[in-house]
Amino acid sequence: MSTSPAAPGDHAGRLGGERSGPSLPDLMAGATFVAFGLAFAIGGSQYDVGTALRMGSGYVPIALGGLLTFLGLVIVVASFRGVDPTVANADRGPIPWQRMGLLVGAIMFFGFTVGGLGLGPSLLVTTFLAALAGHGTRPGRAAVIAIGLTALCLGVFVFALQLRLPILGDWLGG
């Protein structure tokens, strides 16, 4: 496993010490499964359930959604009994909210604009945002990384692989 030091006092595995209260990761994992299970089961009940002979579109999602909800509840209950050793031992720092936001924003920006702006401009912004997420990467360096990567990607995908992706999109009158 990684040997980088974890931030002191922020051990992801526990909430408020060794024995007081539920294991937070287990509780959250269980709750996530319950949420997904219910969402699929309820969403699935909009569709025809059908019969065992001709199962409708809702049959399998409802059954699996129910199963996932059950498993999620089992995990929630278990979380009150102690910490899952595999999680508690994990060496984790705090959640990097800002950097995560930059990365997700970079990818979403690409999805929204690649059609309109075209590959070149869209990628330039995406790589710039992504590069900013690096530790100690200042805007100047991020811009250099962005320009280099954009040139490289255009070379690989547009020139070498001949993908039919316009370099400049309609929004820019290309």
């Binding site: 690989v156 020139f159 070498a160 290309g174």
Partner: peptide, 17 residues
């Protein structure tokens, strides 16, 4: 590898609009 790909590419560059 990319250079060889480029040499081999049978289709010409896409222009836009």
């Amino acid at each position: 590898p990319v250079t060889s790909l480029a040499v081999l590419a049978v289709l010409s560059l896409a222009a836009c609009g």
